[in-house]
Design a protein around this nucleic acid. Structure first.
Length: 667
RNA sequence: GCCGACUUGGCGCAAUUGGCAGCGCACCAUACUUGUAAUAUGGGGGUUAGGGGUUCAAGUCCCCUAGUCGGCUCCA
């Protein structure tokens, strides 16, 4: 018997030839092995000199293997119920997996229950996943009933073309995984797949669930046929599945669309149209506070405030290029027909007016309104600009994707020399302001052009300079920087600030975008110190993105428990009995005089009911007063989390409330 | 835009095979005035998203439109 030398989890060992992972890794939570850097099944036989390590089911790779194996079981279940279903692809995704099928009738919610039953049967059988190497020719014959798989075989080796399908085929060997019934040894199902897989189906049963069905375009292209996709989630244990489901429930509780209605902040009246919000008085207070603070900070940071109209003649967006590139995303024009008098002369020229989808061309016209000197730069123009974009009906989502929104938009006109300094300043300003609103966990994304894509206009050399400058500034910030190749706007590269919220979700917040294109199109120039005419660089930036969207993000971040400075009602006074109402009013009057948003609940409800109501309305401070308080010149606090602090002297109570608002802290 | 599901008083929901549109909260009125998350009694409120069709009969079945939700595609 010959012997091979193998490094196992960092330790050199001598094994019998033909040894595999099953013999090496007896820990049942190890589901695969990494051999010489490649993920392999436990059944993979090791060779002399191999370096292998166990892959735990709870590791990122292990979870992917679990979820991908669950996808195979789902596909087998679907074909067991409907043999006519054709297989698309079935990769693991964040928290779960999906599998696409070409079926006559889409799946209904009841179908998912039946499929879970079928999956349970497969899982309980303990089917083994057996890897088998094949060739293009053989596989094409074997899978002649699976047209989508055959298409993937044809794309093998071309990863760009395969895209999402990379779980099926790769650059190396073409493999099929057979699902084998351990009782009979028969192959009961098979799928084109790179693997690896779990040793058997049993481990899937610990914590999986099918979650929803939806349509998805084959290979992600809207010109292709739509397949029916089933999503599922899978975890190593029941507890982890339950924890995942609780996270989803928590996210649902925080949903700004739900809180917007519950807290009476905003709504989307059907009469107005999709994606067009109205802010109610309470949402209006919050929005005004957000805007006022933003204005103050912009003013302090050297921005000048400008205003521009909501509509413009078409030529402005023709010159900017927006009509050529994004006409589909704009509301259709208001058409003013040509008027002709009785002699056939044009009395009034015909014109098309558009609602503006962007503010930049207006700010550019302000720049152009006079001759500019290098002494005028940097010129920073700020506007809360309302823009309208005809978003496709299917993409609208609460306040985060709307058709009418207000951007906190600014355009900075700078010389190439002070570009870097100005970008550094802007990034610092943006991060500082986001922190004031309570977001403090960021990373940056650098979106660059895709080489060779004609969508991106402008001189490649200029793109290079711009990208390098952004990269430098982003790196200097010390924040994590994630590249986003191909993600740039057609006119320039950008940095976007991604913020993580209270439950760890990331939101794209601010963008800082360089633009070498619009100055060219509008022929912008300034006079340099040597008297020559030079072209300024333009920086677009928005902090909130749109106020609506930021409002939605903050609502979810705080789960409606806004810090006092943002809360629509900051203090509610609840008298223990009617007799103590006048006393509470004297305290409320002092707060009111200091600008605090305070009301006294003098309704007929019982005190306990009032506490319940205002707690559910998420009011930061509930002030109670009864006989004991009045006698002591004090007042009692009750907070949203239920805790209380009784008998606080009135002066101290007022000071505490004012300080919490002033300091923008959470309570 | 595409696929699917959904739309019943302000909000959350119910209504069997097509057979009297109901409940809770909220609202209004009256009584009550209580030390930390729901006082009691009574009352008002819906052309079942809008339109068309089938039927003796439609919240329920069919078609169209609008809107919402979940995905896909998109997001200057």
């Amino acid at each position: 018997m010959s012997v091979i030398k193998v490094t196992v989890d960092g330790t050199a060992r001598e094994l019998e030839a033909g040894a595999d992972g099953f013999g090496l890794f007896t820990d049942k939570t190890i589901v695969a092995q990494r051999v010489n850097g490649e993920l392999r099944d436990l059944a993979h036989k090791l060779h002399d000199g191999d370096v292998t390590e166990g892959v735990l089911i709870s590791s990122p790779d292990g979870l992917n293997i679990l979820r991908h194996s669950a996808a195979h079981v789902l596909a087998q279940a679907v074909q067991s119920i409907n043999p006519e279903a054709k297989l698309g692809i079935g990769p693991p995704i964040t928290d779960g997996f999906y599998y696409d099928f070409d079926v006559e009738t889409p799946f209904a919610p009841e179908d998912l229950k039946a499929l879970e039953k079928a999956m349970d049967r497969i899982i309980r059988q303990g089917q083994r996943f057996i890897r088998r190497v094949t060739t293009d020719g053989e596989a094409t014959v074997e899978l002649s009933n699976e047209p989508y798989k055959i298409e993937l075989i044809g794309l093998k080796g071309n990863q760009d073309a395969v895209g999402e399908g990379s779980a099926e085929v790769g650059a190396g060997e073409l493999t099929i995984y057979d699902n084998v019934d351990p009782q009979t040894g028969n192959v009961v199902w098979k799928d084109l797949c790179r693997g690896p897989h779990l040793p058997n189906t049993r481990m899937i049963g610990n914590g999986y669930a099918l979650t929803r069905s939806a349509a998805a375009y084959w290979r992600g292209n809207e010109n292709n046929k739509q397949l029916q996709r089933i999503y599922g989630t899978a975890w190593p244990t029941k507890d982890e599945l339950r924890a995942h489901q609780e996270r989803l429930e928590e996210a649902a509780r925080r949903d700004h669309r739900r809180l917007g209605a519950e807290l009476d902040l905003f709504s989307f009246p059907e009469e107005i149209g999709s994606g067009l919000a109205v802010f109610h008085p309470k949402g209006g207070i919050m929005r005004r506070v957000m805007e006022d603070y933003s204005r103050k900070r912009h003013e302090e940071s050297g921005y000048e405030f400008v205003y521009s109209p909501h509509i413009t003649k078409s030529n402005l967006f023709e010159q900017s290029g927006h009509l050529a590139w994004y006409a589909d995303g704009m509301f259709p024009p208001m058409v003013m027909d040509e008027e002709v008098d009785e002699n056939g002369f044009v009395r009034k020229q015909g014109q098309n007016y558009y609602l503006k989808p962007m503010n930049c061309p207006f700010h550019i016209l302000i720049f152009k309104s006079q001759a500019r000197s290098y002494r005028d730069l940097p010129l920073r123009m700020f506007e809360f600009g309302s823009v309208y974009r005809y978003e496709k009906s299917g993409v609208l989502h609460g306040l985060t994707r709307v058709r009418g929104m207000t951007q906190d938009d600014a355009h900075l006109f700078v010389t190439p020399d002070n570009m870097e300094e100005e970008l550094t300043k802007v990034l610092g300003f943006v991060l500082g302001l986001l922190r004031d609103y309570g977001l403090d966990d960021f990373y940056l994304e650098l979106s660059t052009k895709e080489e060779g894509n004609p969508k991106f206009v402008g001189d490649p050399a200029i793109w290079e300079t711009a990208t390098a400058t952004l990269q430098k500034v982003a790196t200097a910030s010390g924040l994590e920087l994630v590249p986003d190749p191909g993600g740039a706007a057609f006119y320039g590269p950008k940095i976007s600030v991604q913020a993580r919220d209270a439950i760890g979700r990331t939101w794209q917040m601010s963008t800082i975008q360089l633009d070498f294109n619009l100055p060219e199109r509008f022929d912008l120039e300034y006079t340099a110190s040597d008297g020559t005419k030079q072209r300024p660089v333009m920086i677009h930036r928005a902090l909130f993105g749109s106020i609506e969207r930021f409002f939605g993000v903050l609502t979810e971040h705080y789960a409606g428990h806004f810090p006092p400075w943002l809360a629509p009602v900051q203090v509610v006074g609840v008298p223990i009995a009617e007799a103590f109402s006048p006393y509470l009013h004297t305290i409320a009057d002092r707060l009111k005089a200091a600008g605090v948003r305070v009301t006294i609940d003098d309704s007929d409800d019982r005190m306990q009911k009032k506490i319940r109501n205002h707690t559910m309305a998420k009011v930061p401070f509930i002030l109670l007063a009864g006989g004991e308080d009045e006698a002591a010149g004090a007042v009692s606090f009750r907070f949203r989390d239920g805790h209380q602090e009784n008998g606080i002297p009135v002066d101290e109570a007022v000071a505490r409330i004012l300080k919490a608002i002033e300091d923008k802290v959470q309570v």
